[in-house]
Amino acid sequence: MNVFRFAGDMTHLISILVLLLKIYTTKSCSGISLKTQELYAVVFVTRYLDLVTDFISVYNTVMKVVFISSSLAIVWCIRRHKVVRRSYDKELDTFRHWLLVGACAVLALVVHEKFSFQEVCWAFSIYLEAVAILPQLVLLQRSGNVDNLTGQYVFFLGAYRAFYILNWIYRYYSEQHFTRWISCVSGIVQTALYADFFYYYFISWKNNSKLQLPA
């Protein structure tokens, strides 16, 4: 464990706590893409298949349980919670996210570290996470103004993988055999997808104005 990875994990945790806070306090999921949340649930379930078979550390296990349970809880909230579900922007959240799932599945079958069920699922989850934010970014562009908590949620979600890139650089220089190209390339693509959001987020922060993404 290094400081970059710990900061990344904490930033990721904060993004989830901000989203839970928004849904819990406002009892609303307006501006939140259910499709992105469903993709994240798939990402965590397919990535942490080794949750019960491969014990790394208490921290690792606890964080995996937190990520899986929170992502499933958020999907449940938006789909089933009698109050929250009413504020779901169903007509705006129309990204065909199952296409992303299909494309990542094909890519994982072609590019993986080892051809085993667990490794292919792991590569699939890495690729899917890189593009999982797309339905959310599209929804933000369509829904015009973005409320603060939603903006902060996306910001922390984008920032966490940037910390992971620093972690991979650090591990590359500090550990002999460390190469993790699949994670690294996907992580760079993932962070790049947030580039324009970060730009508009910075502008809105500098001008102290409402976050507006151009349509």
């Binding site: 790394i56 990520f67 550990e175 055999h177 460390f178 993790r180």
Partner: peptide, 10 residues
């Protein structure tokens, strides 16, 4: 050790 080093990231 190898497997431990492999997937120790979240």
């Amino acid at each position: 050790a190898q497997s431990k080093a492999r997937k120790d990231e979240l």
